[in-house]
Amino acid sequence: MSGSRSIVKLALASSPTSVDSARKQPAIQVSNLSIVFESRRGQTIAVDRVSFDVAPGEFVCIVGPSGCGKSTVLNTIAGLEVPFEGDILVEGSPVHGPRPDVGMVFQQPHLFPWKSVRRNIAHGPRMHGKSKTDANAVADDLIAMIGLKRFADAYPNTLSGGMQQRVAIARALANQPRVLLMDEPFGALDAQTRAVMQDNLLELRDRINTTIVFVTHDIDEAIVLADRVLIMSAGPGRILREVAVKLPRPRSSSIMVEPPYLSLKKDCLDVIRAEGLRAFNQSDAS
């Protein structure tokens, strides 16, 4: 992290809002979120007046090119990115920092290398005052759910990348968060492992019914997983379009060859292509 950050007030306030303004209170409400990074070179507007809602139990994917601020948006909802301009409410209360009802899975598993799989997963419950026995019981349930019973006492460096990321997901779920944020969690995995992990996540989600916001740069991954896809543009980060994914559930990655899927993908790609062309011409002109 270079330089200090500050906020710039932005006068304009109109922005696209969620199509699906739910009757129930949204799990997440982001309104007019702007984030400015300040470095010696000057100010960079990373995120520009982004607004969206996520309904309880909804699975939303944010896609966009690298550097579009999608991870920054996610980190801000997590309470890891301050300061920011605008309002973020999770379960109706404003975000000031990391909170127990919001879990996060990062691109790297970031498992504690000195803790076994069980103790990694039990860490959250332990920090929230659960006894060792109770925390281990929670961990063992989750270990069974992610299919790693044989590795409960193994240390992270003995696990494959995919297994490590499964542990990281289980660790985030151990606190029973209302909202799970996932920042390109499968980005560092190979294509095969990635497909398996996507199917695992779909299966897992049908069981736990947590609200999920998932950031990725892979449009296929976004459509396979999400109920709704938010497409972001770079420089500054804005939401270009939201696409509702009305594909039947339970799903698996095999829907990727079916016509409704393909037409959705075409819609998304058209938006991305138009934006890419615009950005390219703009950089050419300057």
Partner: peptide, 19 residues
């Protein structure tokens, strides 16, 4: 990254040092 992960899991600042 470990510190961010620990923060997200609700590790209090005081325990961050030893944990």
């Amino acid at each position: 990254g470990l510190i961010r992960a620990a923060l997200m899991l609700g590790t209090p600042r005081r325990q961050m040092l030893q944990e």
